[in-house]
Amino acid sequence: MKTVLNLSVAALVLARSIYLYAGDDYEEHGHHVSSVAAKPMTQRDKSAMALYTKECGSCHFAYQPEFLPKRSWDKTMNTLDNHFGTNATLDPADHKTIQGYLTTHASKSDRMTGMGGEVAIRISETPNFKREHREIPQKMVTQAEVKSFANCTACHTKAAGGSYREREVRIPNYGSWE
């Protein structure tokens, strides 16, 4: 009996781990939602993520690497001299560390990005992003408290932790998105 119970507990732990790290898609209120789940990280990855958050997050939200495939992060990192109109070049060692972090944890398929052969550098231009945000009126996005779709944390209350569930969306001056 004890062996069966231990196997059952082990199966539940394994199932929960698969859910947490699979980037599982599910339906919520009739809308398709993609959860972005972090992959297990080494201490080196954690240091690289801290550097990424410090360097890139000082100007904008430090997007989870899973939002774009490797080729998109490579293109972004290799054009930092003109990063959306700003020179965002980095020290060579920091550049290598951040690029390694982003490409290691990038989307392995087009499931999240839906880009096919295209190389997007704006997450807001990916088909998955457009599909998930298609019903949001422009006036909610262009208001001073949000400014643009690039400002994830303005509405997604748990975006920094990688959660983009619909029930966690609070649009400034409008409230919950239901």
Rank of each mutant, 00 (worst) to 15 (best):
residue 92 P to N: 08
residue 97 T to M: 04
residue 122 R to F: 00
residue 45 D to I: 13
residue 8 S to W: 03
residue 17 S to E: 15
residue 67 F to Q: 09
residue 94 D to Y: 00
residue 57 G to P: 06
residue 7 L to V: 07
residue 160 A to M: 03
residue 5 L to S: 08
residue 154 A to M: 02
residue 41 M to E: 15
residue 114 G to I: 09
residue 109 S to K: 05
residue 117 G to F: 12
residue 93 A to S: 15
residue 11 A to L: 11
residue 8 S to L: 14
residue 93 A to L: 00
residue 16 R to K: 12
residue 104 T to E: 01
residue 36 V to S: 11
residue 79 T to V: 04
residue 52 Y to T: 00
residue 7 L to E: 06
residue 6 N to E: 07
residue 100 G to A: 07
residue 31 H to I: 10
residue 91 D to K: 07
residue 165 R to Q: 08
residue 48 A to T: 09
residue 113 T to N: 03
residue 163 S to L: 05
residue 32 H to S: 13
residue 129 F to E: 02
residue 83 H to D: 15
residue 1 M to P: 11
residue 143 Q to C: 09
residue 90 L to E: 07
residue 137 P to Y: 14
residue 109 S to G: 00
residue 166 E to N: 09
residue 126 T to N: 04
residue 89 T to W: 07
residue 159 A to C: 10
residue 84 F to I: 02
residue 129 F to P: 01
residue 116 G to W: 04
residue 165 R to I: 06
residue 177 W to F: 13
residue 165 R to E: 12
residue 55 E to H: 06
residue 172 P to Q: 00
residue 103 T to D: 08
residue 122 R to A: 06
residue 104 T to W: 05
residue 7 L to M: 12
residue 79 T to Q: 01
residue 66 E to W: 06
residue 29 H to W: 13
residue 57 G to H: 01
residue 22 A to S: 14
residue 172 P to A: 08
residue 155 C to E: 02
residue 10 A to K: 04
residue 39 K to I: 03
residue 69 P to F: 06
residue 144 A to D: 12
residue 27 E to F: 01
residue 90 L to I: 00
residue 101 Y to E: 02
residue 84 F to S: 11
residue 50 A to L: 12
residue 112 M to Q: 01
residue 48 A to E: 10
residue 131 R to W: 00
residue 17 S to I: 10
residue 173 N to R: 03
residue 71 R to P: 01
residue 134 R to A: 15
residue 42 T to L: 15
residue 172 P to R: 00
residue 128 N to Q: 14
residue 66 E to V: 14
residue 109 S to E: 10
residue 53 T to P: 09
residue 20 L to E: 15
residue 41 M to I: 10
residue 31 H to D: 07
residue 25 D to L: 15
